[in-house]
Design a protein around this nucleic acid. Structure first.
Lengths: 159, 159
DNA sequence: TGTTAGTTGAGACTGAGTCTCAAGTAAGAT
DNA sequence: ATCTTACTTGAGACTCAGTCTCAACTAACA
């Protein structure tokens, strides 16, 4: 089953009203790996220019609230969103030159984290762990500065 | 020797002109553990209201460039700055209720990171690792939402 | 097919940060 | 000590991302 169908079902069963606008936002969001709010606004408005910015932000907040979308503050540019519904926990490795984002898992970290939390008597709720560097392809390139914002990877429109 | 004296010397030896404004910004910054740009602006302007916002931002950027100040995107609110000059590398643990920030070191992480970077053929440049939870004191409190922004810890003014 | 509470679009508003440029000044040269 | 000049500053306009308000609209249940 397509992911957006599951997301829509989840919304329905949780008493959240399904409007055309929300459907569109969800469908466009799941087509991306990572995206910024403004990118999603533009993308959604290409399909329906009448959808307001506020609606996209509100829907995004709602999805985040529901735990289907996560917001990441990568170090450069505005925050990045990711649809995490039915996805295993992972951390991120980002190329500072081309903006590639790799998702990886490292269970040994999770254990070390618990250890640290215990050390300081903290009840751990969440964490972010991000590595920044240069991917193999960009290590040769001359200018090592961030060339473009963290991106993107669009699948086809699933309408 | 006071930290700000070292910072000022460093600036001097690197051909950066020492103005009264920069001196003030540096001195106020080293009085904090963590601070936001706007907090520093207000703080600096209490000592000299004629210092412009732009000047504080510019000085902050310069110090960051020089590697004496680090910018942290904690998950809530605007970015947090920290004077890292002559400080060992560390990561952060933050209480989501009272905003306490604990700095800790965990060398085993660094090794795991190198491993991950190698796995993906990345040249690692930097990383951020932040744990969020509830400190011992706040675990009992009723409302678990973030009560106030990441803060602060002011030492006395060193003028 | 009502009814109504939840949702929307439009645009004003906010907060954080950047930019511009004329005026001011630190610090090396004289 | 004073000159010179490139660097720095203050003021305020500007930008960008995100939030808020409110009248008009609509999904979904009765």
């Amino acid at each position: 089953m397509k992911r957006f169908v599951e997301v829509e079902q989840w919304l329905k069963t949780h008493g959240i009203r399904l409007t055309d606008q929300r459907r569109l936002v969800v469908r466009r969001a799941v087509a991306y790996l990572h995206f910024t709010a403004e990118e999603l606004v533009k993308d959604v408005q290409e399909f329906d220019p009448s959808v307001a910015r506020g609606t996209v932000y509100r829907t995004l907040a709602m999805l985040q609230q529901a735990g289907m979308v996560e917001k990441h503050d990568f170090r450069y540019g505005p925050p990045n969103y990711e649809v995490t519904f039915a996805k295993a926990h992972h951390d991120h490795l980002m190329c500072l030159h081309c903006g590639e984002i790799i998702e990886f898992q490292e269970p040994r970290w999770e254990r070390l984290q618990d250890e640290v939390a215990t050390r300081y008597k903290y009840q751990l709720l969440t964490h972010t762990h991000k590595l920044y560097g240069l991917c193999a392809a960009c290590q040769g390139a001359g200018d090592k500065r961030l060339a473009k914002p963290p991106h993107l990877h669009v699948e086809e429109m699933v309408a």
